[in-house]
Amino acid sequence: MKKQNLTTVSICFVFFVFFFMFQSKYVSLVSNSKVSRSTIIDQGKKDLVSKSTKNWVLDHHSPPPLHSPRGRLITCDRSHQYYDLCSINGPTVLDPATSTFFLQGPSTMTFPSMFKEKIRPYPRKFENFVMKGIKELTITSAPQRPKCEIQHNVPALVFSAAKLVIGGLTSLISHGFMNIDPALIPNSRTFIHFRAFLEKAYGSHGQIHPSKNNSPLVRPRLVLVSRRDSLGRVINNEAKAKLVLEKIGFDVIVFEPNPGTPLNEAYAIINSSHAMVGVHGAALTHSLFLRPGSVFVQVVPLGLDWVAQVCFAKSARAMRLEYMEYKIKAEESSLVEKYNKNDLLIKDPVAFRGKNWSEDIMNIYLKEQNVNFDLVRFGEYFKQVYKKAKQFMDKER
């Protein structure tokens, strides 16, 4: 076959296509994944029927929707808080130019009516300002489908890929922010199992485990996650904070990840450390590389207590890390330079925000705010961190 431009080539997939939301603005196609046909989580059959039955397209011989999942050709479940999930249980043709998936049934099959559904494959459907940036896909049973130019006789998984430095969780459903709920997994896997999976994937690239080094460490190793080139939550006095940490007794490694940072290199740095500290942000997803028992300190700027808990505190505890928080005081936040110290925005961020985590409020606390440590307070706090990290290091000897 002659080489053809992707935008003009239609691709057909046999079996079924799952539309799933993960994290980013670009749609990825993974055609070698082993996907279960049991894709709809049972949240009550009655509730599921009322919300989804209108979206099914069935041939004349198909049984009622709840009686035989294999009889469904197209299903969409929009009952979940975080994500929508659609599947095509049969051959389909992809038109990359329009981001449309066409159901392709046997020539003898007829459909009661044309079906058309749209989906943005991302697990944050409750945040409109985020979802606006996610590419919309179309699923249809329209008869005017493009010709299939390239065939793949395998299942296909469609989702939005991660924009974070590393991906948090990979699954067909979202368990929430940085969370694994064993009740939603048939084999009851936990974060401990996921950590073992990461060890297997990235732990065999030749790095030397601290406890196996012929020259035992005298000082606990601490990774300081830097946001120097980021928009918001930058540590303005990072160099001075590093000197304080070294004076306390840490061997400090400044880690400034970017989208091009090889995961095996990041794993080697963090897995070999005894402590890690960083301001709340996507880069703290690297805490998944810390060994159980090591210390993880999340620096929490003003107004971000709740998001710090749901994004990293829960996962850290689930991985059996020694989790700690350094909460920024008003004097350590750059917001006091822009807003009055007595404003509700600074005095009581919870009351200021209320139940409205809008884009404007989010920008204030996430993008306008930088950190300037009170180095005396910072030093006193990290003496406690040092004690815990030293205990962890000594246990390995």
Score class of each variant (00 low, 15 high):
residue 145 R to G: 07
residue 258 N to L: 07
residue 245 L to T: 01
residue 17 V to W: 06
residue 44 G to C: 05
residue 266 A to Y: 01
residue 347 K to T: 04
residue 188 S to M: 10
residue 329 K to H: 10
residue 134 I to C: 02
residue 173 I to V: 12
residue 237 N to Q: 14
residue 393 M to K: 03
residue 105 G to N: 05
residue 266 A to E: 05
residue 332 E to F: 12
residue 366 L to G: 00
residue 296 F to I: 08
residue 69 P to L: 11
residue 134 I to N: 04
residue 260 G to S: 15
residue 153 N to I: 09
residue 262 P to S: 02
residue 360 D to Q: 13
residue 231 L to V: 07
residue 155 P to Q: 14
residue 188 S to I: 07
residue 118 K to A: 13
residue 374 D to K: 08
residue 340 N to G: 12
residue 247 K to F: 05
residue 137 L to H: 00
residue 268 A to L: 02
residue 15 F to H: 11
residue 44 G to K: 06
residue 348 D to K: 01
residue 76 C to V: 04
residue 103 L to I: 14
residue 169 L to H: 07
residue 252 V to A: 02
residue 159 F to C: 04
residue 150 I to F: 12
residue 117 E to H: 14
residue 30 V to Q: 07
residue 181 D to A: 04
residue 113 S to G: 14
residue 34 K to L: 13
residue 267 Y to V: 00
residue 121 P to Q: 00
residue 376 V to D: 13
residue 375 L to I: 03
residue 76 C to T: 04
residue 221 R to E: 04
residue 73 L to Q: 11
residue 387 K to E: 11
residue 323 Y to S: 09
residue 276 M to Y: 08
residue 94 L to H: 03
residue 318 A to I: 10
residue 154 V to Y: 13
residue 312 F to M: 01
residue 172 L to T: 10
residue 331 E to L: 06
residue 75 T to K: 05
residue 351 A to K: 14
residue 70 R to N: 10
residue 96 P to C: 10
residue 315 S to L: 07
